[in-house]
Structures are given as C-alpha cells and as structure tokens.
Design a protein around this nucleic acid. Structure first.
Lengths: 261, 261
DNA sequence: CAGTGGTCTAGACCACTCA
DNA sequence: GAGTGGTCTAGACCACTGT
C-alpha cells in the first residue's frame, strides 16, 4: 500500500518546478524567469495560477520581481558582519570610526549615519526595565540613528540614555561632531565617566512592519534581525540601550564568546 | 501643491484597515477576523480581493489562518533564549543537561533531542575552511540533531567534527548516553582532550526553505535564525562546528560580550 | 449541514519598461 | 507600441471544521 501523497495543486507544482530549475542552475543569479503569460501557457493554466507560483518564490526570498520588467533570480548580497569588537575602545581611537562605519568599511562599503531625531521621551517597558529607570516618566533621551551603506539604508538604531546621564550634555542635543576622533557616542560616554566594559545583545528575527519596509526599502521575502543592545560600564551599571533593526540580507552578526568555566 | 500620494489599491486598503484594527486592539491575540466573504461584502469587493488582504497580513506574520476555521490574530510566542553560558562546563556538570535542554528548562518547556543521522561526509566549504580540513575528502563526521520543546520541533543542528578527532569514538557512531551526567557531546570532547574555551557564533536570518518549513512546521510569515557555531579548545584549535537553524518566533539569542580594550 | 478557507478560471484594465 | 507585472471581478468547485 503506497501512501497516496496528495499531489500539490498546479500553482505549487509550477513553483516547485521553477525552484528546482533554479537549484539545478538552469537559472542563475540575475537571470530572468519566463513571463507569467508564458508560464501559464507552458503549464496550461490561467495566468493567475502562474502568478501565484511566482509570488510563492518571491515570499521565499528567491526572486526579485520588477514591474514591467520581469522576475529575476535574486543574487546573494554582500553582508556587513557586525562583530563585538566594533565597540572596542582601541579600534575607535585608532580608526576614528564609529562601530558601524568600521564594520561597513571592512565589507568594502561606504557608510554614513544620520541622526534625524533626538528627544526626551518615556522609555518602552523593556528598555526601562534594563536601564532601571521609570517607564512612567520622560526619564530617557531617545536618539534615532539611520545607517546607510553605499547610500542604501541598512539599519535603524534607536538609542535610549537615562536622562540623569545625558541631561545637559551633547548626548541630549546633538549628533556627535563628525570631525572628532571620538566619532561615536561612546567617546562622549567615556568623558562622562562611563567606560564600556561589556555589552548584552538580545537577538531575534521577524518579518518587517510596513513602516520598516518603507524606511529600509526591504524587498519581499527578507526578514529583519532585531538586536536589543545594552551597554554596561565599569561599575556594572547599564548606561545605554539601543534597539537595532536591520535588513537580514545585508547584515549578519559575528561574535566571539569566551566560555566561563 | 500637495503631493498626490497615490492611494493604495483595495486589497492594501483592506489589509491596512485590518492591521490598524489589530494595532488598536479591536482584535486581540487569538481573535477571529471576519471571514473572507464578509470582508468582501463589507468593502464591496470580490472575495479574492479580501483574500489578498488576508494573505498580506499572513506574510507579515500577524495571522494564523486555518482552513475551515478562519483567520486569527497570532498570539506572541514564549521564546527560548539561548545564551552563551549554555556551553558552561560548570552548568553542564551541575545540571547534567545539554545546552539546549538547560535553556528550554529555563523557558518552562520540556525539551528532548533526537539524533536521526550520524555519518562520515565531505564538509561544506564554509565548514571545511573554519575547521582547517579538506573539503574534497570525507574529512568530517556529520551529526544531525533535532531539537524539540514541548514536543514541537524548534531547531535543527548539524554538527561537523574532524575525522581525526571523532574517528573511532562514540562521536562518530552514537548518540551520547542519555543517562550520563555528561549528557552533551562536550563531555565527550573533554575526555578527548578538547576543553571548550571560546565559541564563535555567526548569525543571520532568512526565510525558510520548503524542507525546513516541513521539518520545523514553520507557519507563514516566520523567518529562521541561522547560527554557524564554532567551538574552539584550549589550544585555540577549532574542533567542532554546528549549523543551527531555528524558528525565529520560538528562539532568541542572549549574549553577554566582554569588550576588549 | 452551513460556514470557512484553498484553488482555479477567463477575462479585463492599469502601470511600468524599453526600444 | 509591445511586453511585462499589478490588480480586480464573478463565478466555480474542492477540502476542512464545526454543529
């Protein structure tokens, strides 16, 4: 008795056939797939059925579909690899680069960062808990950062700093001086007596929200990596939290972790 | 002159309306949305148009759609938080738990692990490079692990161990003894003279492949987190690599990183 | 059984790209 | 202009869930 595995419907069968053709290398990165109308004729189905097949592969992240042009096999992207050493004091002093700039440079990309918004706000619950500040009052400064690589937006970072630390300093008012050798907020923290000794990074991934799709210009079938980053100083006090949201196709994390006994 | 921002087509408008209703709390986690036929009538469109709206939200990971039942607001899932301390020698000895079991227990879930396949193979290129073994020969043992939490598959791990280390040992042949206090392959490595002193974890995220969807029973709109894990011993030699693939809605990473000066 | 989602059809019109 | 994807319609039948 063979198990009568129900065969998939036409749209799945077309999708499977195309996926296998891609895997077998019959279509290479950048190649154009047959048009929806051609696929429909080939598989003797309605155009909508062929279209459904294409959209399945698009949601899997295999295709780039361009209105008026066609569907193309998505080429793998060069990734920025974010390591923990990007927070290194020495690296910052020697290169004069902020963490993101240093990593982008290593990936052969040109980076720039914009700080479109700085304001005093009530912190989100998870941030308040980790910083040990009240969620009910405007106890933190919020700094929004947009990160670009080769002109393309690749990350958003929202930093929260307790008002008791940032109040009255440039952290609460200005982007750091682009000319400074301390071209990172960590340079400012050091001058305020907070030396970064360890960080906590809580990582997860999910599909982007529509506003993130718009902001980061995220194509279909690409998730975001979310990192909740906590900076801790020499007195074991958390003094800064940043929530990073990054395109998963352009960013990866690369950590070396010592194993305590 | 106002910018005549083109208004979205009906399917997007329905999707936006439903998304906002969910965000405003008009539908809570677990609530059932109106049926496709009802939505179509409400918005005076064809059923397919309402259906398209539902599938947009499903791809965003907001809905669970059940054949014959309806579309429901997806509730947030309890996550297993995987920290680097799961590799701690002391934790392993004290609890007698493998890394995964220890973390699952902390999340209040019952864990079990299956090792469905152990064999000698040619390593993938990235693995060969990191282990310093030839990719052209069957230079590694490959161990496939399936991880379950509360009976649900949540992770796949494929471990590669150089044949020069694993050959002739239980690493090449058997699952570790479930009764042993060293219920983890790291116990075996220690007996072979490889003490884990640090790990490298290279992290990225992407949409799952169809085989991963089937194996991990991944719902639509849920990405996977991929971790390429390298274990390094007291002599700075990499002795083991595992490629983890995990459902991003059920798993997160939680690392504490010391910052070198 | 009624109600729900899953899939398909055949056709239409629009919007975009490229020669 | 020809070719492509984007969207919609109106209807049909199937498969699954519940009472």
């Amino acid at each position: 008795m063979s198990t009568p595995t129900k065969e998939p419907p036409p749209s799945r069968r077309i999708a499977d056939a195309l996926r296998q053709a891609i895997e077998r290398g019959e279509y290479s990165a950048g190649d154009k797939l047959p048009s929806e109308r051609v696929l429909a004729a080939t598989y003797e189905s309605a155009r909508n059925t062929a279209r459904e097949a294409i959209s399945i592969l698009e949601a899997e992240g295999l295709l780039d579909v361009w209105h008026g042009k066609g569907a193309f096999v998505r080429p793998p992207a060069r990734m920025i690899r974010l390591g923990a050493n990007r927070y290194s004091h020495r690296l910052r002093i020697e290169t004069g680069l902020s963490p993101f700039r240093a990593e982008a440079q290593r990936a052969g990309k040109t980076a720039h960062v914009e700080v479109p918004d700085i304001r005093r706000v009530k912190p989100p619950a998870d941030v308040a808990e980790r910083l040990g500040v009240p969620a009910s009052r405007r106890s933190v400064v919020q700094r929004v950062n947009h990160y670009f690589a080769d002109g393309e937006p690749v990350q958003i970072g929202v930093t929260y700093i307790p008002w008791v630390i940032a109040g009255g300093t440039v952290l609460a008012t200005d982007a750091t001086d682009p000319q400074s050798r301390f071209n990172s907020i960590y340079g400012e923290f050091e001058q305020l007596g907070h030396r970064l000794t360890k960080v906590r990074e809580e990582i997860t991934a999910r599909m982007p929200r529509p506003d993130e799709v718009a902001m980061l210009r995220i194509p279909p079938g690409v998730p975001v990596i979310q990192v909740l980053h906590t900076g801790v100083d020499q007195d074991d006090q958390p003094f800064e939290i940043t929530r990073f949201t990054m395109r998963a196709d352009l960013n990866g994390l690369d950590y070396w972790l010592p194993i305590e006994d």
